[in-house]
Design a protein around this nucleic acid. Structure first.
Lengths: 347, 347
DNA sequence: TTGTAAGCGTTATCAG
DNA sequence: CTGATAACGCTTACAA
């Protein structure tokens, strides 16, 4: 590679380095480094010279080199079941926004509720010497657990909250969500209440919700009634559940709790088509409060997870662990958040 | 820092390095490097020894160091207006999935349709020596343009397609989308057709859609009728547009094209509440085909952008530019994609 | 307040 | 097929 000055370089990106800036500014390169990291420790005179050199050369600090030298880069990895689902995007967004404001960058990967994929993602992230890691839920493969434990960096588990975990947790109790839904329906007088599980079997958190439901049912002397759809898509699965539970001749469900709003929404559409009056004939409760949920007919009563808050607080907790002083003043907030039951027409 | 073997190290992460592996395996470190990069060039005997050393030490290659040494890391940055919106998530997801399958990692930042934020994100990304960069739309600040031009790496502009751009483009013509909607409604016999702009004024692509609409209207000797909501939220804006355009006593709109499905959906809800029969009294066309759109009453006729394909093809184009051999066989696909008009009940 | 020297953990280069 | 050596661009440690 031939450079502008005519010399040859064997390697290098061709971009201006901190040394180039230092040379132009007539200072040592470490002073340029300080100019960026701790401007206060550099005299105003030098600062000015460095400033102009930086803009003359259009210098962009090489964060890779910086990360290597300091052994802790400003990258934070996040593994999330999926990006495009309506649930997690808000968490990613707020997580990323808070981190970006503090000069950290988000490295993202999705697991699709697969422990193997999660493990692969965590392993790769670790190769980037991240400053911290965020994962979803408390359920990981054994290897992932070891990886996280030996990483020696802050780890946050989001979207869940369980006692006695060694990592920081920011989320809520899925079991409690299941209880909440069941209690709500029982309070309304329903007794024949069914629970429809997620068509994605490896969604462990959905199983926790189911368990909370079952617990409350038993407390009330009622038998839990679980339905596991066999259909592949949530859309088909919701319809299937509706046909099996609400459209039967005898002993139809008076109320159904769905593992998520996707299932509930397709159930409402199926019910509508079949002429079922909701909630009179069959009440419906979902989980997630997706954007569509308020627009259905009947609008969907559902439990709203604090998705945005989770991302925000998770980021703040990480920043604290990293010794940063977060800009936002919301530090008092707890890590265990509550879900709000949004009462609409369907139940 | 005191290490396990009792020696002291001044720096370092404490994790096993390639040298540790080499020592345990009894080979040179460069051979370990080759074991990972080009296994074929290492003899089976050494491969076996390295393999066991790697697992014994639980070695994870340090990608930061690798990126520095090779001057092109395996990171790819993407700037997208927002993560949590229903539109872009699918693009991010498929983009990330393809890249991950090829050993690249996605670094994500959102611009919120702000050129300043986009510029900041691009600048930071460049500091990570990314292998490539993806941005949204053809509209950038001047500085961003220079940054991208001088980056010397593949740059993809997504979600747009315009002639004579220097970067790779993967997307569709927003102007054509505007034309498509207008022609569809004109073909149905509507004449008093209005266009409702995005409440986010800096959404340049939405302005292109409007221009396409206006162009077709003029071709048909009709006067374009633009409405700019003043309300801050899309929900309010859609309602406001409906009141201004469809609920007026005289000269109400026969059909309305909305800049996106969020606006259209809230318009449908407002219309429903006001007792407007859609499409008889007023037809509605959206853009985006969000998940909710098929569930509205009436279900929303809208134009579906190929979000997932955009991410996928953008990733494939980048891999090609990088000299990788993409796993998927979809290389024949064009970069200029079509949007499908999804005909439902509202128009 | 500023500078010098020595890494950080990997890969490109060149030599065997 | 294997290895020694010198970068990559920055920051830590120490010195002035």
């Amino acid at each position: 590679m031939t450079q502008e000055n005519g010399t040859r370089k064997r390697r290098g990106s061709g971009r201006a380095t901190i040394h180039d800036v230092a040379k132009v500014a007539g200072v040592g390169s470490i002073t340029v480094s300080r100019y960026f990291k701790q401007p206060d420790t550099v005299s105003e005179a030098l600062r000015e010279r460095i400033r102009s050199a930086v803009s003359a050369l259009n210098y962009v600090p090489n964060l890779v080199a910086g990360g290597l030298a300091s052994t802790h880069g400003r990258i934070i990895g996040m593994v999330i079941p999926n990006i495009s689902g309506p649930i997690f995007a808000n968490t990613i967004q707020s997580f990323s926004d808070v981190l970006t404001a503090h000069g950290y960058q988000l490295l993202l990967a999705s697991s699709y509720f697969s422990e193997a994929q999660e493990e692969r993602a965590v392993r790769t992230f670790l190769g980037w010497s991240p400053a911290a890691l965020a994962v979803t839920s408390q359920y990981h493969s054994k290897a992932t657990g070891q990886l996280l434990a030996s990483a020696n960096i802050p780890v946050v588990e989001t979207w869940d909250y369980a006692p006695r975990r060694k990592h920081i947790q920011v989320g809520f109790s899925h079991t409690e969500v299941g209880r909440q839904a069941a209690r709500y329906l029982l309070g309304k007088g329903y007794r024949r209440i069914a629970f429809v599980q997620n068509s994605v079997a490896s969604d462990e958190s959905a199983i926790d919700r189911r368990d909370g439901y079952a617990e409350v049912m038993r407390e009330h002397g009622l038998k839990p009634w679980m339905f596991i759809p066999t259909a592949a898509t949530p859309f088909e699965a919701g319809k299937q559940a509706m046909e099996a539970l609400a459209l039967r001749q005898r002993g139809a469900a008076e109320a159904i709790i769905f593992a998520n709003d996707n299932l509930a929404a397709s159930a409402i559409l199926a019910g509508q088509r079949a002429g079922i009056r909701m909630p009179e004939q069959c009440a419906i409760v979902g989980f997630g409060d997706y954007a569509m949920s308020s627009m259905l007919l009947p609008s969907l009563t559902t439990i709203r997870p604090p998705a945005k808050e989770i991302g925000e607080i998770a980021a703040l907790r990480i920043l604290e662990s990293l010794g940063e002083t977060p800009l936002s003043g919301r530090l008092q907030r707890l890590n265990l958040l509550a879900c709000e039951l949004v009462e609409r027409e369907s139940a």
